[in-house]
């Protein structure tokens, strides 16, 4: 194609340039090397007749291959601030790394178990109180035993109070959770509010289910209602935890990979 690849100096120059331009797109790379080759074709028109001195002079006028490559990587004016400015990589903040969602998940599950356990105990003892079947007509126990309770046995107020008390006892676990969730950048505000509210909210959900069950189905439903409420509370905590941790881990991963995805050409 070109008469010059035969001259070792020209071949060495073009090979060096081609190698230095590896970081470019194939079209741009071929275009630049082709342009330089034609330039030499034009300067040294007679096949085989160019002396070493002529070739050296032509190559000297071109300048070092490294300088040509540097210009190629320097970029277009409109994009050069990005391409040529040193890439300042801010490290991912400690609070946005994967350990945080895992820790929050651990705290969340522990706190929820703690609170719901306390609730379970409360509703369990509540159902025990309801245990003796009371004859509605006489107000006396059907089995003739002592009347333990009269009137509404399942007291909504006390159930809510138990729920709140359970939430308060979880405070030592809840506090670090609030701090971690508050400082991280891995969750959005709405997600943070949900995570922080989950521990106080879960026992209230349990209580609400039990109260509704009793209101609709009567005293006998207090036990099963509490159990259903507990199961619902556990499920709620687990689902929210899994969803939130997965989101946070995905974001942490994206943050970390953005730092290595930045190409450095020159």
């Amino acid at each position: 194609m070109s008469p010059y690849p035969d001259h070792p100096l020209v071949r060495a120059y073009l090979d060096e340039l081609d190698g230095l331009l590896r970081g470019l797109g194939p079209q741009e790379r071929a275009e630049i090397v082709g342009g330089v080759r034609e330039h030499l074709d034009g300067l040294l028109p007679e096949v085989g007749a160019a002396s070493d001195a002529e070739v050296r002079a032509a190559l000297a006028e071109l300048g070092p291959a490294a300088a040509v490559a540097e210009e190629a990587y320097a970029g277009w004016p409109a994009t050069s601030p990005v391409a040529s400015a040193p890439v300042v990589v801010a490290p991912v903040p400690v609070s946005s790394r994967p350990w945080l969602p895992w820790t929050v998940a651990g705290l969340l599950v522990l706190a929820a178990l703690f609170v719901l356990g306390a609730m379970g105990g409360a509703t369990g003892s509540g159902s025990a109180e309801v245990g003796p079947v009371v004859d509605a007509g006489t107000g006396r126990p059907a089995d003739g035993g002592t009347v333990l309770v009269s009137g509404p046995v399942f007291d909504a107020g006390s159930v809510v109070a138990t729920a709140l008390a359970a939430a308060v006892t979880a405070f030592p676990l809840w506090l670090p959770l609030v701090v971690l969730v508050g400082t991280t950048g891995l969750w959005r505000l709405r997600e943070k509010v949900m995570l922080v509210a989950l521990v106080p909210l879960a026992p209230l959900v349990v209580a609400a289910v039990a109260i509704v069950a009793v209101a609709v189905l009567g005293q006998r439903a207090a036990g099963p209602g509490g159990a259903v409420g507990l199961a619902g509370g556990v499920l709620l905590v687990l689902v929210v935890t899994v969803v939130m941790v997965r989101r946070a881990l995905r974001r942490a991963d994206a943050l970390a990979s953005r730092l290595v995805a930045q190409p450095r050409l020159s």
Binding site: L17, E31, I32, E61, P64, A67, A69
Partner: peptide, 17 residues
């Protein structure tokens, strides 16, 4: 321009633009 070689990356950019 000092080295003539630097013209060609520049021309490639102009064409790309």
């Amino acid at each position: 321009m000092s080295g003539e070689g630097t013209l060609y990356p520049l021309l490639a950019r102009l064409r790309k633009a």
